[in-house]
């Protein structure tokens, strides 16, 4: 196991940040800690890094108890949301900082920094200062700086949170490819479910100081363990006692067996796909379906039209969910 967190609790005064949290991060994986702000995910990451001390519980990094180690002895790399660039140092000196601290020979530092700058695609910017870089470049510099000392684990605290949407998309993609190259055990904290789903192979969903569910992105989507995960990960229609994802709602002929009568209330084009807002005849239940263009064209839907809906794929909350935790 890359990282093991056992029964960790942390309070700040009267506020409980973490309540008996246990997680395992497999070696070489890219795991996301996903949750709304205040869910405790950043505190958990900072405890793994040694920037906060847990009130109870323990942290193991590559099998070694790190609970009482200061940050500099844990062998972790950390990337902050606001870059934490050393403003008075050049990009080269920023990236080489950890190596210089370890008294590495100058020539070796130079070679290694050049390698890393190539890796994060900042070649040619080595002599610039952080203030002369864009936000995305600064964050890539921070990543190179963290990787320079060969950390056993890489911890990223909302690394793309301060960047604009387009740069964020690019960096997500880039981070995933980078991870395929360097394979260091990586934990990414984010509040953006799309980001977590896109980048990571495993997601730990947190809410109110607890872990709600752990699983592969598809598991969380298909088999949410709780109402919270269901609502937080992906779009959902809530039915009495059950839920169904909008793309699982099938539109059919009302006379077909298993289909119920419903009325099309509104059609809403959302880029590539279309949102069809429906009202079930039987009880007035409102829900919506997500349709691809060809399907929409085939059905030729109009507002006010009478259609059938097939909700066979609707599930009860918690069904199969226990399997999801071990599926990854």
């Amino acid at each position: 196991m890359g990282i093991v967190v056992r029964n960790v609790g942390k309070r700040f005064g009267a506020y409980t940040a973490l309540e008996d949290v246990s997680i395992e991060v497999p070696d070489g994986s890219l795991t996301a800690l996903l949750g709304p702000s205040g869910s405790g995910k950043s505190t958990l990451l900072r405890i793994v890094a040694g920037l906060e001390t847990p009130d109870r519980g323990s942290v193991l990094i590559e099998g070694r108890d790190a609970t009482n180690l200061p940050p500099q002895e844990r062998g972790v790399g950390f990337v902050f949301q606001h870059y934490a660039a050393f403003k008075h140092m050049t990009v080269r000196d920023n990236v080489g900082f950890g190596l210089r601290i370890r008294k590495a020979p100058k020539a070796q530092v130079r070679t290694r920094v050049d390698e890393l700058l190539g890796l994060v695609q900042l070649d040619g910017l080595a002599e610039r200062y952080p203030s002369q870089l864009s936000g995305g470049q600064r964050q890539r510099m921070a990543l190179a700086r963290a990787l320079a000392v060969e950390p056993r684990v890489l911890l990223l605290d909302e690394p793309f949170g301060a960047l604009d949407a387009r740069v964020r998309e690019e960096l997500r993609d880039w981070l995933r490819r980078l991870h395929e190259q360097v394979h260091v055990t990586t934990v990414l904290v984010t509040h953006d479910q799309e980001e977590a789903m896109e980048v990571s192979s495993r997601i730990v969903v947190m809410n109110h100081a607890r872990v709600e569910q752990v699983g592969a992105p598809a598991d969380l989507y298909e088999r949410p363990a709780s109402d919270f995960v269901m609502g937080f990960v992906g779009k959902v229609n809530r039915l009495p006692g059950a839920y169904i994802r909008p793309h699982e709602v099938r539109i059919c002929d009302p006379r077909e067996p298993g289909c119920e009568a419903a009325e099309v209330e509104r059609l809403l084009a959302l880029g590539f796909e279309t949102r069809v807002e429906l009202r079930r005849r039987r009880d007035g239940q409102r829900l919506w379906a997500q349709l691809a263009p060809d399907e929409l064209a085939r059905l030729g839907l109009e507002p006010g039209q009478e259609v059938g809906i097939d909700l066979a794929r609707a599930r009860r909350i918690g069904d199969e969910a226990l399997l999801a935790g071990t599926a990854a």
Partner: peptide, 22 residues
Amino acid sequence: MSVAVDRAVPLPASRRGARRRV
């Protein structure tokens, strides 16, 4: 453009121990 991860500057052995921090 891969970086040889293992050929890095290792942490000095003394730092790895459970030496108490001053």
